[in-house]
């Protein structure tokens, strides 16, 4: 089944689901499906249980941080300056709000096919970073989603055991974010000592 077929079926059979194909410009040509964040779990169950797809193996789960970015556009407009029509260049700055993204690489062991790449975006990078956990569908996401929670700060709703996995419990930041600033080494040591048992 091609990605386009999967997309149209998802929109037909998962009520309310919005899926979009993200084109990959590299020679690998691994395109992916961007699913709206409210239908992650239903989509995952559909993909796993569909007899033609049988995506029974969720290989890789990871996250990507896309911070706010500014785009400057130069627009040429015709304006009347001092009574004469002239071409004037104007720069327009737009801020594109950032988000956190999760990426799932799905394969089918039954049909020996794959990968189908699934992506989901959080609403922003600050106060609405919740996504549906896919661990109830694929146990292999358990530790990997914990890692995305730990290092990127994505909260997975419905995860059975969402705790930090690599950093210690008292740690508050998310080191894989692009704007993370590591504290000086001595501070890290003090932090570790002041949180016994963590």
């Amino acid at each position: 089944m091609t990605l386009e077929e999967i997309r149209s079926r998802l929109e037909a059979f998962v009520p309310g689901c919005h899926a979009e194909i993200v084109v990959n410009g590299s020679p690998s040509a691994q395109n992916s499906l961007l699913i709206d964040r409210r239908h992650g779990l239903q989509t995952a169950m559909y993909l796993r249980d569909h007899p033609e797809l049988q995506l029974d193996f969720c290989s890789n789960v990871t996250a990507v941080d896309w911070p706010d970015r500014e785009e400057t556009e130069t627009i040429k407009t015709r304006k009347i300056v001092d009574g004469v029509e002239k071409e004037v260049e104007e720069t327009k700055k737009t801020t594109i709000p950032g988000y956190l993204e999760v990426v799932y690489h799905l394969f089918s062991i039954a049909k020996k096919e794959g990968p189908v790449v699934l992506r989901m975006h959080t609403a922003n990078r600050t106060d609405d970073v919740t996504l549906q956990s896919l661990t109830p569908v694929w146990r292999s996401a358990e530790f990997q989603e914990r890692e995305a929670f730990d290092l990127f700060g994505i909260v997975f709703e419905g995860h059975p055991d969402l705790r930090r996995i690599l950093m210690w419990e008292g740690f508050t930041d998310h080191p894989m974010r692009k704007d993370y600033v590591p504290p000086p080494d001595d501070d890290l040591e003090l932090l570790a000592v002041s949180k016994p048992g963590a």
Partner: peptide, 24 residues
């Protein structure tokens, strides 16, 4: 400097499936 895009590759390492996911 690879073109903008991404790739996932995996091999059968002695321990299991070793995958690398890159975004350029």
């Amino acid at each position: 400097r690879p073109k903008v895009g991404e790739a996932y590759a995996r091999i059968e390492s002695p321990k299991g499936e070793l995958g690398f996911y890159l975004i350029s």
